[in-house]
């Protein structure tokens, strides 16, 4: 039964990979990669229960945080071509 959950996660990961390859704009690709990272967290957790070794949850916990930082950094870098100082006066400077 737990293998069925893992299969659903894998199917959804395949759909996210399809969108990240096909996506017309770069924001579609960032969104698909973000969803893929979230699904990786779920897959690690489910695999920990599937193999009776729930110690994998530490990896899932770290991966959830790194996925968030990566998405923020990539969306800022794509938009402004640098990660540094906020652009003065522009309200969109600090996304």
């Amino acid at each position: 039964m737990m293998a069925a959950v893992a299969l659903a996660v894998l199917v959804t990961m395949a759909l996210a990979v399809f969108r990240s390859i096909k996506g017309p704009t770069v924001y579609d690709r960032i969104l698909a990669v973000n969803a893929f990272g979230t699904l990786t967290v779920v897959l690690i957790s489910v695999y920990g229960f599937l193999s009776e070794r729930p110690e994998f949850l530490d990896l899932a916990l770290v991966y959830a945080l790194i996925n968030f930082i990566g998405t923020i950094a990539v969306s800022k870098y794509v938009e402004f071509s640098h990660m540094g100082r906020p652009t003065g006066g522009d309200e969109l400077g600090d996304i």
Binding site: T25, N34, A60, L65, I72, E79, I95
Partner: peptide, 29 residues
């Protein structure tokens, strides 16, 4: 640990989506 993962994802997912939407609007989409 599972509750912590749920908390982190529920906290970070809207933030990442909001930043991505602002980047897309600023980028001309």
């Amino acid at each position: 640990k599972l509750a912590l993962i749920i908390g982190f994802i529920l906290y970070t997912s809207p933030t990442a989506t909001h930043a991505l939407a602002r980047a897309a609007l600023h980028g001309g989409v």
